[in-house]
Amino acid sequence: MSDPVPLTTDHPGQVASATPPAPGRSRRLSDRTLAVAFISPALLLLLAMSVFPLLWALYLSFTDYSATRGGPAHFVWFENYTAILASAQVHLRALTTLIYVVGAVVLQTVLGFAIAYLISRRTRGRGVLTTLFLVPMMLSPVVVGLFWRFMLDAQFGVINSMLGSLGLGQVEWLTRQRTALISLIVVDTWQWTPFIMLIALAGLTAVPKYLYEAASIDRASEWFKFRTITLPLVWPLLLIAVLFRAIEAFRLFDLVYILTNGGPGVSTETLSFHVYKVGFLGFNTGTASAYGILMVLVVIVLTQLYLRYLNKLKED
């Protein structure tokens, strides 16, 4: 949409050769117009595809609308919201989500930072190692979910096969209540540890070498160096990565859908999965919208936190 303009005005010399601003002002686009012309198409798309749907969901959340039943929507005001907030089912899903998010993010952070730390201490082969470690992160959640489902299969899965040859018992990974949630955490950790590793590595390589050298001269122990130099300098960046992962884990849907489909029972139903069940299987569009709006509020709070730390990091 912007390309025809420079092609047609092919006599720039005459416009501004003598005194640039005065005669040109009327003919050339002012910076303000240009900014608006360049920014508004992108913003319009966002308004149409992100903001408008959310406003619609907000409207629906106050009604008893059902996408399949059709018919007019009746205003029920805050009924949907009170129903959700009071529902024991939802509380259970919130707990599941909390366990999942905290478990996965903590594991990823510890492992990812450990790997990054180990890699940063190598002088050779860093590039290759980093590239190899990053593979899981680039895969689609669909591929990851499907594949782990195969590997964790109770009968012919390779994990149980390996456990068997070690003389350990078989585990029904995805069909027992407790192990299913653990499996979900493990798979997410497998996929996203590289993410933390990548960011932590960026932080670690940015720590100036002379700090370590100075500490060595003072005969500081490795642990002391780690605690007083490495950790404080990498922490701000690591925090960004952790918050980012927390948001992503909170809104995760596809992995649950593929790996366990919420089961067995409801043991791996996270909040996003529950919204899907209410909205697309239960056809309670109004309730699902209210549910969704509540989730959006949580995401907004987390995002604000994330952006605040990001801002802080950028200002330093």
């Binding site: 913003l43 992100s50 969901a57 996003s272 909205g279 969704g292 995002t303 952006l307």
Partner: peptide, 26 residues
């Protein structure tokens, strides 16, 4: 603010956005 708003649209849970998008597309 504009830039932060733009980024935060990216963080919306897809399962939530897909409900109104579904109705809109229908």
């Amino acid at each position: 603010d504009q830039l932060f708003f733009i980024l935060s649209t990216r963080f919306m849970p897809p399962v939530v956005v897909v409900i109104p998008i579904f109705l809109m597309y229908r």
